[in-house]
Simulated scan of single mutants.
Amino acid sequence: MSAYSFFTDNELYLLLVQDNEEAFTILYHRYWKRMLYKAVIKLQSHADAEEVVQDAFTDIWKSRHRIKIQNSFHTYIAAIIRYKVMAKMASNKREAAGYAEDVHTLHAEDNATEQWLSFNELRNEIERSVKALPEKCQLIFRMSRERGMSDKEIARYLNISPKTVEAHISRALKFLRIYINRFVYMLAFAATLLTRA
């Protein structure tokens, strides 16, 4: 048995931040089954639930140097699982429509690039930019755009004020607008170089 087995979740996370793979493995085994059970109940699919939980732990490892846990690790992993489950539930019926709406809202397309920038490329870039948002901001944005919940519904669900919800969504859209516009600019620049070659 590992000496780390008796460490608290937050102690293990502090070790994880220092690239300690053993601490990560212990947290993984400590929470895998619990999170899988929650995901299976919501998704009614063991395969989808496994994918969601695996993605959550992968994200934790990748973001270990930039995410600071405010409360407990349990709260942190539960929140990640919650929004990933919602994203999975929404992906088949709402993803295309929701992201198309965001692309329109953010004015991400322009005439110079729309002929060769595919929707899938842009959608994938939006997904990457959404994942770069702070945890709570990302959760609220996904609840709004992927699940179609109103500000009041999100506020009731998370026990926060509608104004706070509105502020998070506004912050997310501002961030995404900058991120996507930068992406489109880089593509346009690359296209210019290819044209000159």
Rank of each mutant, 00 (worst) to 15 (best):
N10T: 04
L16G: 02
S5M: 12
F7I: 03
S5G: 11
Y4K: 13
F24E: 02
Y28S: 11
S5R: 14
L14D: 03
S5H: 13
Y31F: 14
T25V: 04
L15G: 05
S2I: 00
D9T: 05
Q18N: 08
Y4T: 01
I26N: 02
A3V: 00
Y31H: 13
M1F: 10
A3H: 12
D9H: 06
F6Q: 11
Y28T: 06
T8E: 08
Y28W: 15
F7E: 09
L27I: 00
L15T: 03
A23M: 04
R30P: 00
D9W: 04
L12G: 03
E21P: 09
L12A: 02
E21Y: 15
V17S: 06
L14H: 14
Q18M: 08
M1C: 13
R30L: 05
L15W: 04
F7K: 13
E22M: 14
E21W: 14
E11V: 09
T8G: 02
D19N: 15
M1D: 00
H29N: 15
Y4F: 11
Q18P: 00
E22D: 06
R30A: 09
S2D: 01
Y13S: 01
Q18T: 00
Y31G: 05
M1G: 12
Y31W: 12
T8C: 01
E11A: 14
L16T: 04
E22R: 14
Y28Q: 12
A23F: 10
N20R: 14
N20Q: 07
L14K: 13
L16C: 07
Y4D: 00
N10G: 08
N20W: 12
E22A: 14
Y13A: 01
F6N: 12
T8V: 00
Y13R: 06
R30I: 00
L27R: 05
Y31T: 04
R30G: 01
Y13M: 01
D9E: 07
D9K: 05
Y4V: 01
D9S: 03
L16N: 04
E22T: 10
E11M: 11
L15P: 02
I26E: 02
A3W: 08
F7S: 11
S5N: 12
Q18D: 06
L15F: 10
S2F: 07
F24Y: 10
Y4L: 11
L16Q: 03
H29D: 08
V17P: 01
A3F: 13
D9R: 05
L15R: 10
M1K: 14
Y28K: 13
I26L: 12
L12Q: 07
I26W: 03
D9L: 08
Y31P: 05
L14Y: 09
F6M: 10
N20H: 13
Q18G: 04
Y13G: 05
L16K: 08
S2K: 08
D19Q: 15
D9C: 07
Y28G: 11
Y4G: 06
T25S: 15
L15K: 12
Y31S: 06
H29E: 09
L12S: 03
Y13N: 05
T8L: 00
Y13E: 00
N10R: 14
A23Q: 06
Y28H: 15
R30Q: 03
F24L: 10
R30C: 04
L12F: 04
A23R: 08
S5W: 09
